[in-house]
Each structure stands twice: as structure tokens, then as C-alpha cells.
Computed example of a mutant assay.
Amino acid sequence: MVCIFGLTGGRAPLVQATTAQGDSMSASTFRTDRALPGTAGTPGSAAVPPGARPAPDRPLTSIVPKELVHRTGVAEVMLTGWERVEGDHFTVTAQWPRGHSLFTTGGRYHPLIAAETIRQAGILLAHTEYGVPLDGPLPVEEIRVSTRPGLFGIGWTPATLELRVTVRPRHADDGTLTGLRAETEIRRDGRTAATGLSAVACVTAPEDERPPSRRPALRDGLPAAAPQAPLAPQAVGRLSPLDVVLSPTPRPDRWLLRTDTGHPVFTGRGGRIPDMVLLEAACQATAMTLGRPCTPLDIAAGFGPGTVPAGPCVIGARRLPAAGGTESVLVTGRLHGEPVFHSTVTAAAG
């Protein structure tokens, strides 16, 4: 398969995305129609004939299309390429920016950037390697991440990452793909920075089968409910009220979920509460329960059948018994009185 981007006339160089496996979308590489500054051939190489298309002498970094990872903006895409190694084993490359409104703070990456990277990798491979249509439902069922804090510092350049992904597809008796689980190791500078997994469902009930009372009012395909007043940002380890996803209630262990659809990260598809909103809510509820902002070491989250329909969602939390120098909090989400989300967040003991 060859995808061509750019102008077909004029003087702008075309950019072509080609693949090493013919019609497969795997092993994406990029080249330009003419040499770029600093990428000419090696010294002593023959002159390039007019009309020829010299290849750069080193790889050029680009991101994968935002549609393949369910992002509305290219600035939120973490992945830069992928390649099938053999069978259901893949290598995915990624890059973390040095600055990000949500995922960087105090010279360090927040562990949620690893969760988002793992989420994107599972969705990317579902679409490109397992035939899941781009316009089809692909709800996330589970996300897990375990981090190595020593490898989450921000350096002088963006963090370049290699993801080693093993996909475990799930099929119905008739062979139909019903879901897949992407087990992922994130490596930075040759060392394991995080491990985790994402699981998605490839077949769900049609949207219109939900009872009318469960269907959210939409605005431009997103829930139209206005967010309530947020908690104090410093109480949950955030700098801006825009990044706070919880609103207070009379109970100290209960909060209302704020779904601000204008947030660049907290965006979803089909009028549903985005996965990253719920993961951020779990981290913020953990901070409120422990009485201090904290950096999670491990996050394990499960989502209800399908993904969670948008609506007034109540977040609850309770502390679990401490063990091994860590503290854990169980966070739940209930929509219309029904459980739709649960997560265990573990942090270093304060």
C-alpha cells in the first residue's frame, strides 16, 4: 500500500508513506521526493540525476495518523511507527514530549503518559494489523500499567521509546474477532520503564440498543453536560483547574466526575466518557483519599461492558490495607446507580 500526502503540482515535495509488506499497513516508513537539508547522500556518492528521488541517509521521525489512535489532535499522538516482528509480536516506536499540559510536571513524566501510550498501541494494532474498521466501535475493557519511576525523568530531548507488544486476539466460535489484549513493555534507553496492557472489545451492541434514558445528549458528537466546579488543583496534584476532573459532594469519599469535552486529552468517541478521564479521576481520588498529591506506581483499571456512556458519574474511593511500603486505593465509578468503572491505584507510602 502506498499513501501519498502533499501537492501533486507546484514545488512542494511529496511525502510518501510506504510499507515493507506490500498491502499490509505494517512497518511504516517515510521518504520524501527530494533531498532535505542535512540528509544528502554520503560524501563521494554519485550525483543524483535530474528527476531522481534520493532517499535520506538517516530515518526521519513522523507520527502515526491520529485517527489510528483515536485522537482528535496530532499533538496528542505518542506513537511514531510500528512493525510486525513475527506472528502476534510487534515493535512499536513512540516519543514523549518534553512538555505537556497534563503528562509532565516538576521535570518528570506522569505515569499516565505510559497508560496513554499503551492504550494507543493497542488501538493502533487493532486497526492496522487485525482489520478492525476505523469507524467501528472499539471500547477499552481494561488498562494496566506498572512504572519504574527512575526512568520517568525529562531529559534535554524528547524521550524516544521502544514498545515490545504481544497481542492476544479473542475470537468467537465462528472465527469472528471479538477482542484483543495487547501486553506491552515500554523500553527507554534499553531499560524497562513500564509494563502494562490494554484490552479492547471489537464487537459491541449497537448504540441505539441502549435504553433512551441512558443515551446522552450530544453536542458535536460529545456529551453536552456542563462541568461542575472543580476541586482545588493543588489538592490533587494539578496546576490548572482545567485538568481537575472531580467536583466535591457532601461526602468526603464521593465526587462527581467532570467531563469537560473541550480538554485536549479528555476526548472520547460516540458520546462516551473517555478512558483517560476515568484514569485521571482514579489518580485524583487517590490523592484525596491519601490526603496528599502522589505519583502512582501502578494503575489497574477495568471498564464496564462497552465503554461508559456519558452522564452523571459518581466516583467513590476507599483505602486498601498497606503492604510493602506502598499504599493502595480502590476507586469506583457508578452511573445511574450501576458500577461502570473500577481501578486500583498504588503509590509509595507517604
Rank of each mutant, 00 (worst) to 15 (best):
A52D: 14
L231W: 05
A35P: 00
V245P: 03
D220E: 12
G155V: 01
G87N: 12
R334C: 07
L256G: 11
Q234H: 15
F303I: 06
L161Y: 01
G150Q: 08
T286L: 01
A52F: 13
T19R: 13
F152P: 03
H127P: 07
L239V: 12
P97C: 10
S45D: 12
P49Y: 07
A20F: 12
L180S: 08
A322D: 15
L124H: 09
P158Q: 10
T344C: 00
G311W: 04
C283W: 02
L222P: 00
D298E: 15
A322I: 03
L7C: 12
L239P: 00
P65W: 08
P312S: 12
G262P: 01
P233Y: 08
I299G: 00
D57Q: 05
T184D: 08
R238L: 09
P248G: 08
T128K: 08
I63Y: 09
T42W: 14
A322M: 03
H263T: 08
R318Y: 05
P111E: 11
E83Q: 14
R269W: 07
G153L: 10
T332Q: 04
L335S: 02
P227Y: 01
P206G: 15
P59R: 09
F30K: 03
A20T: 15
P293S: 10
G337E: 06
H263E: 08
P293E: 10
H100W: 03
A115D: 05
M25T: 12
P139H: 10
D275I: 09
A232Q: 14
A27P: 02
A172W: 08
H110M: 07
V64Y: 04
G150Y: 00
G87E: 08
T160R: 14
M288T: 12
V203D: 06
V314I: 15
P321M: 09
H171L: 13
L257S: 04
E116R: 03
L197V: 07
T93C: 09
T72D: 14
R34D: 02
S198A: 15
D173N: 07
G10S: 09
I315P: 01
R254S: 10
R251H: 14
G324V: 00
T91D: 13
F303H: 02
A35T: 12
F103G: 02
A347I: 03
V314Y: 05
L14R: 14
L231I: 03
R188G: 02
T32R: 11
L36V: 00
R11V: 11
A282G: 02
T192Y: 00
D220G: 12
L125A: 01
R210T: 09
P223A: 07
R292T: 14
D208Y: 06
P312F: 13
L335E: 01
A193T: 03
S28T: 15
P137M: 09
P139V: 09
E129Q: 14
G306T: 07
D208H: 14
A47Q: 10
T195L: 10
T147N: 04
C313L: 15
G325C: 06
E141Q: 15
L151F: 08
S247D: 03
A349W: 01
P241I: 11
V345H: 02
A235E: 13
R144N: 11
H263G: 09
R31A: 10
P305E: 09
G87P: 07
A226Q: 12
F90G: 05
P309W: 03
